[in-house]
């Protein structure tokens, strides 16, 4: 079961590269939250109940519902529905995405050890690259936010890879999620007006 969830997570990453509608991005972020919740549930079944509940509630409430909700609010406020016209076309992003998947497979294989599952490592690296590609190839703040959320999910995936051995590190990762969620989305994101959506006033 857990492998199906991980493959589904990888498919959402490929889908990110092939779409240009912001609302689809937001739905995919919510879906990733649900998938991470399922993966955490299966993967961390042997850690203590308190920690498990904390992690599950964070993925379910924060990643699957609160993040998409705040992102929708920001999109409503800024009035954007699609990525910037100067953003890299989806076809090329898809090519980058596939290349990054191959690089992730090679990297994960070369780092194989007895303590971390290779499939976790592959998908975590793939998510990291996908987030970075989205940030670098897009121009709108919302796209950058989505890219950052994907990197956050990559971090969470890495944590899960050794979760049952060190729940403390997962909790620290969750702290990062909450910190960023509240500060970036809640405080600054909601203050951005439509005309500040590109943030280009500060330059040399």
């Amino acid at each position: 079961m857990i492998n199906y969830l991980i493959v589904a997570f990888a498919l959402t990453l490929v889908y990110f590269a092939s779409t240009e509608r912001i609302i689809t991005y937001i739905r995919l972020i919510g879906l990733q939250g649900l998938l991470l919740c399922g993966i955490a549930l299966f993967e961390l079944s042997d850690i203590n109940l308190g920690n498990l509940l904390f992690i599950i509630s964070e993925t379910l409430l924060f990643k699957a519902f609160m993040m998409p909700f705040l992102l929708s609010k920001i999109v409503d406020a800024s009035g954007v529905t699609k990525v910037h016209r100067l953003a890299m076309p989806a076809f090329y992003t898809l090519l980058f995405s596939i290349a990054s998947l191959l690089i992730s497979v090679v990297l994960a294989a070369s780092m194989m050890n007895n303590y971390v599952s290779t499939i976790y490592m592959t998908i975590a690296l793939f998510a990291l690259f996908t987030g970075l590609i989205l940030i670098v190839t897009h121009r709108l703040i919302v796209s950058h936010l989505i890219g950052f959320m994907i990197i956050e999910n990559a971090v969470f995936f890495f944590s899960l890879a050794m979760g049952s051995k060190m729940p403390m590190l997962i909790n620290v990762g969750i702290l990062l999620d909450i910190f960023v969620g509240v500060l970036i989305l809640g405080f600054f994101g909601l203050r951005l007006k439509a005309h500040t959506n590109e943030l280009t006033r500060l330059k040399d």
């Binding site: 990291l128 940030i135 703040i141 950058h144 936010l145 950052f148 990197i151 956050e152 990559a154 971090v155 890495f158 944590s159 890879a161 050794m162 590190l169 620290v172 990762g173 990062l176 910190f179 960023v180 500060l183 970036i184 600054f188 951005l192 500040t196 943030l199 006033r201 500060l202």
Partner: peptide, 22 residues
């Protein structure tokens, strides 16, 4: 704008540093 950029890029950097810790 400056604060947004600071928080966003720092958070990305901090997430990457966290990967290093992982």
């Amino acid at each position: 704008e400056a604060t947004w950029k600071y928080v966003f890029i720092c958070s990305t950097g901090i997430a990457l540093a966290y990967l290093g810790i992982l």
